[in-house]
Design a protein around this nucleic acid. Sequence first.
DNA 1: GAATCGTTCTCGCTCAGTGAGAGCTGCGAC
DNA 2: GTCGCAGCTCTCACTGAGCGAGAACGATTC
Lengths: 248, 248
Amino acid sequence: MISKVVALLDAFGPTTPELSLGDLARITGLPVSTTYRLATELVEWGGLERADRAGYRIGMRLWELGTLAPRGGALREVALPFMQDLFEATHENVHLAVRDGLEALYVDTISGHESVRTRSRRGGRLPLHATGVGKVLLAHAPPEVLAAVVDGGMRRYTPYTMVAPGHLRRALAEVRRHGVAYAREEITLGSLSVAAPVQGADGAVVAALGLVLTRGRGDLRRLAPAVRTAAISTSRALQRHARLTESS
Amino acid sequence: MISKVVALLDAFGPTTPELSLGDLARITGLPVSTTYRLATELVEWGGLERADRAGYRIGMRLWELGTLAPRGGALREVALPFMQDLFEATHENVHLAVRDGLEALYVDTISGHESVRTRSRRGGRLPLHATGVGKVLLAHAPPEVLAAVVDGGMRRYTPYTMVAPGHLRRALAEVRRHGVAYAREEITLGSLSVAAPVQGADGAVVAALGLVLTRGRGDLRRLAPAVRTAAISTSRALQRHARLTESS
DNA sequence: GAATCGTTCTCGCTCAGTGAGAGCTGCGAC
DNA sequence: GTCGCAGCTCTCACTGAGCGAGAACGATTC
């Protein structure tokens, strides 16, 4: 069972990038000597790092392995030029997300100085039902994913969050029909978003590309064509990329 | 011992992003059933991914953990604006690397369409003795690192590669004295580079920032001040970032 | 339908991993 | 300088979690 190693690695998070031995033992529930032994082995491999008697941090070997994740690194490298194009064209926040379980996982974001601060962050997760990219991903997920989201209950973030299952189903049908999703102040008051699907080599939706802006700064519907264009270009580039890596 | 899990993860590389069960067993030397069991557990955690009976790939949980590595993600986020500035100013390849063991590990690179193709790649590794960023990192490493590089033998990549220990030591002393390192066709014929150190909160050199260009395109020495400026700006931003994260 | 290869799954066996506790280190108070 | 405390490091007797051979299953090719 790899559960002890997994527990150690899962102890780290965006707000806890560095943890002492005692922290790790407390968080994981493992005995201190077990924690020490496993952490030392992870340091020897490079998965964790530690300066003399300082706290443990995620090491470069895990960073390196992370760059090998096709749905992280490769997707992002292929999508980045189109995200930059979309940013140049709109000067709004650009997000690229994939579905991971029952959440939207943000693979990359581009923000300018004048862009509104958003809750999304590279490596961060947000719910599927309340974000633009999330709705795109949910609309194109297997039916059991939507069932699990509905069964697990949908949290209300603002008065506008869609929490009625029927309402959500109808909205997702609209997303599939029109190829674009909107979220109006559903995750954060004042924030609007529009997102479109990114397809992989086999036509399956592998990611969503979206814009987030402040209410009053622009017309979501007028921005939709630009988002869809960037998403379609990304899809095409992914298909070319797949052919290149297959023939390697 | 985490060695079996580590062996499985180490099987993946830039040229092998997807591996079958049989591939994994062969590469790691583990029995097929052991490989199957451990790989299934990694999939359940999210460290690996697998579509139906398809190959295994690095999963988003490892990508996510990788984003938590301070020497990867945080360093890169802080350095990125200065790398972009340097790229805008010079239109040459910009590299950010850290020392990992006895190699330079590339945290990020920026290239333009007109930039020369380089051997370095985000997540890639190159030797310390034959690259600009590598010499910076080696010049500021503990003495035992240089000893290990020298004892391990230094590979010659071109007729200009510095492989004499005495020659390298003198070059590294120059790097420390002038705060900048050069590599002239030492890793690739036709490629020149200039790099400068990036310091962390305590003044220790934590990374190197460098430019790579084609022989004949520009004067390395005239580019050095721009590289040093970007490196100093990055150092200062890192120090500010460290104070922010400490007070969290 | 048979052969082959790759994958999945079971379960008897055993040794690799466990974790209590002793020892060590660093720090602050007095 | 000494003492107490907290955190960390290390050892080793013990045992049950992990191991992996081999049977069963599925896909592909002939």
